[in-house]
Structures are given as structure tokens and as C-alpha cells.
């Protein structure tokens, strides 16, 4: 069995961390801190095509697929959004496409950040989650197709 934590386990960890905060200010201070600590995305990735639509702030999101796992990198010009992204990356990055697609992300509600999921133009968390799941789905499809090709090749051999 691998040592890697499951998405659910990481979500639980975050919920536990947030349970230590007494006030909303403390929660936001923590999120801002996460935002500040998130590694800056290299300029070469800050392209229009990497922008997540539906955010009032600018959010860039890129994904890599290495050894069957999806790895995310992201950045934003707004720090609270960056903190929220940082949590999403912590939860989803390094998992398989299937795990990412199936993730319930209930922690967002449990830590009281549901307002950021609202379908308004000012909050882009929902758009980010969607985009991350889209990446996972794209890798999954690509994966199945190349497997399909390979098995087709095997048959013809």
C-alpha cells in the first residue's frame, strides 16, 4: 500500500486545521498566508489560454500528467483566491484522473467557504474546481484512447 494520503484524508486534515480557528478573521488570515506561500507561476505559463474564466481576479491554471498522476500549478493576482487555489492543489494535485474526477470536495463547505462557490462573477472557486476536473477528464480520455490504440496494435500483431 502506498504512503500517499487519499484526497479524503487531505480534506479531513484541512477541516481539522480550520476547526482550530475561532474567528473568520483567523480563517482568512490563514488563507491569505497560504496564498502568499504558493509558489509563483513562471511567466511562460501566464498565458491567456491558461486563464480560468469566471473569476473577477485573474487565475492561471496549468496541469502536468506524470506517471498516471495529475499535477497542478496555479497563480492569481488576488491573494485570497490564491490561498483557496493552494488548498485545492494540496487536495487534488498528485492524484489519478479518476480520483480527481470523483472528489467530492466537501471540505469547502465544512470550512465555511461555500460562499466562494457561489455562481457569481466575483468568485471563481467553482470555475477553478471545474477546470481542474476538466484537466483530469482530458487526461483520462487521452489515457483510454492511447490504451485503446495500444491494444488495437497488439491485436493486429
Amino acid at each position: 500500500m502506498s504512503d500517499q494520503k487519499t484526497i479524503q484524508e487531505i480534506e479531513n486534515e484541512i477541516v481539522e486545521e480550520f476547526s482550530l480557528f475561532d474567528s473568520w478573521d483567523d480563517k482568512y488570515e490563514y488563507i491569505i498566508d497560504l496564498g502568499k506561500k504558493l509558489p509563483v507561476l513562471e511567466d511562460k505559463h501566464k498565458l491567456d489560454e491558461n486563464k480560468v474564466r469566471g473569476c473577477q481576479s485573474t487565475v492561471w491554471l496549468v496541469a502536468d500528467y506524470i506517471d498516471g498522476k495529475v499535477h497542478f500549478k496555479a497563480d492569481s493576482d488576488a491573494v485570497i483566491v490564491k490561498g483557496l487555489i493552494s488548498m485545492l492543489i494540496r487536495v487534488l494535485s498528485g492524484h489519478t484522473p479518476d480520483e480527481i474526477i470523483q472528489a467530492s470536495l466537501g471540505f469547502i463547505q465544512k470550512i465555511g467557504m461555500t460562499t466562494h462557490l457561489a455562481q457569481t462573477r466575483s468568485n471563481g472557486l467553482l470555475a477553478m474546481v471545474k477546470q481542474m476536473k476538466n484537466f483530469a477528464l482530458a487526461y483520462k480520455i487521452k489515457n483510454t484512447m492511447s490504451h485503446g490504440e495500444r491494444s488495437a496494435e497488439t491485436k493486429s500483431n
Binding site: W24, D25, Y28, I32, Q56, S57
Partner: peptide, 20 residues
């Protein structure tokens, strides 16, 4: 400072402004 960050933190104090 990004206007959105200010908007979120003001809302957290019950203050409604528009950002964007």
C-alpha cells in the same frame, strides 16, 4: 492589493461594496 481581496474581507465585516 487586489480589489476582490478587499471586497471579500469587507463582506466579512458586514460591509457590502462592489469590486470589479
Amino acid at each position: 492589493v487586489h480589489p476582490q481581496d478587499i471586497g471579500i474581507l469587507l463582506d466579512n465585516r458586514g460591509i457590502a461594496v462592489r469590486t470589479g
